[in-house]
Design a protein around this nucleic acid. Structure first.
Lengths: 250, 250
DNA sequence: GAGTGGTCTAGACCACTAA
DNA sequence: TAGTGGTCTAGACCACTCC
């Protein structure tokens, strides 16, 4: 006869992680505070180093803690920026509404610290969405207070924007959307597809992400009147730095 | 004098992880395929077991692979459900638009497999958003094909919904929004705040999430005419199971 | 220079899966 | 029962941070 399920207590490293997590969640350990290090855990619990490391790895992979070489393991901070999907239907006219999540983007300016613009063959998605074989692509990285928070890659149908300022570093007053307007293709409708996942190593490096930090990926398509797609913008956001807000009617 | 930066090659475990990742991304290893196990990696690269484990842990924490006890490590699948934030402005009228991400929710039905309804003191957020001290709370878990994909917790001002079907398991035809309408508080405006993070252990358990799987958290507030907040719905989604879609005008 | 986290080895016992 | 991943020990050398 087969045995009934047995009682299993959590492994040591997990119980240690649970304890530390509780201290973080309860505020006993606050933003930026130092967690007990590997040596401290070894001494306190009488465990091997690998086990102490495993306990800390749990919190690191949960995005609650960040290791700093030669220094220690610290409580991670969450100071999001609020990104409005639709400004037009803003919270103003629904004044009773209180923001659920704090964000401190106010007063801090976006900085674009990298730009690459080139014409290239459309990838599978761009080709499918824009219905174009060649595209002009604008890649950039946004930072706030010197910290990178977002990667953005915009695709435009090459035939449409060839010879315009959209293919130049300086797109002029009003930016690319104003230039699309000059062409008679003002964007009037937007679709955003939002996903979240762990970053690839290249993304983690460009955004300076520690372990346990997911990214939010927004695939945004801009349509001109007549339903003509004029831009595909693929954005990769540090999930710890953003709260997305969308307003809409019933 | 201080030395200039030295050349650092990647550690072994990272190079192994990179190789395996490449095979996954390129499709050499497809959905559900088995990765080389710890023993295989030890033999192939002549490394210790801990090092092989570390290599696999990288992919697991990136959400690219899933370990199965006693069996092996397998390539993770990504089969998202499309969730429309706003159905009214659907893609129909922007017919040229092609969905960027495939989703296979069609034909599969949501199942609510857990319900808990109770009156309780409002938490900090609920109190702030709804302006109520007591709330009725409906907790549920949605599954698709028997797999849990979403936790949802709805809060209603207790004074508003007391004695209505909103406090009962069966809310009647049209659900809670129809009942709110009966009260003269039909929701007409919605605000959704979207974040992503790693799940807490309790969330990971309820959703059956493996390591390296983030969650998307949607805080949705429903407003009746006059800007009266009538519901706060806090949803926790398996990020690997969802693509959120939002449509809006310029 | 002392302490920290990063990498790695060489073992051990366990629970679980699958043939 | 053989093979797998899960947990844990007891060491080692390294690069880095901070004083």
């Amino acid at each position: 006869m087969t045995e009934s399920p047995v009682h299993h207590e959590s492994p040591i490293y997990r119980r240690i992680a649970d304890r530390l997590r509780e201290q973080i969640m309860s505020g006993t350990l606050g933003d930026g505070d130092r967690l007990p290090g590997e040596n401290a855990l070894m001494a306190e619990y009488g465990i091997a180093r690998a086990t102490a490391r495993q306990a800390l790895a749990v919190l690191i992979n949960e995005g609650l803690a960040v290791p700093r070489r030669g220094s220690g393991v610290y409580v991670r901070l969450f100071r999001p920026i609020r990104r409005h999907g639709s400004r037009r239907l803003s919270r103003q006219q629904w004044g009773q509404g209180t923001a659920i999540w704090d964000s401190d983007a106010r007063g801090r300016a976006y900085t674009v610290d990298e730009i690459q613009i080139q014409r290239e063959a459309a990838g599978e998605q761009a080709a499918q969405v824009l219905g174009a074989q060649d595209v002009w692509v604008r890649r950039r990285r946004y930072s706030v207070d010197g910290r990178p928070v977002q990667l953005a890659v915009s695709h435009f149908p090459a035939d449409l924007v060839e010879g315009t300022a959209i293919t130049l570093p300086d797109t002029g007053p009003g930016g690319v959307y104003a230039r699309l307007g000059d062409l008679g293709h003002t964007p009037v409708h937007f679709t955003e597809e939002v996903r979240a996942r762990m970053p690839l190593p290249g993304e983690a490096e460009l955004l300076g992400l520690p372990a346990g930090n997911p990214v939010i990926v927004i695939s945004r398509v801009a349509y001109a009147v007549g339903g003509v797609p004029v831009e595909l913008n693929e954005m990769t956001l540090d999930a710890a730095s953003y709260v997305l807000q969308y307003d809409f009617e019933a």
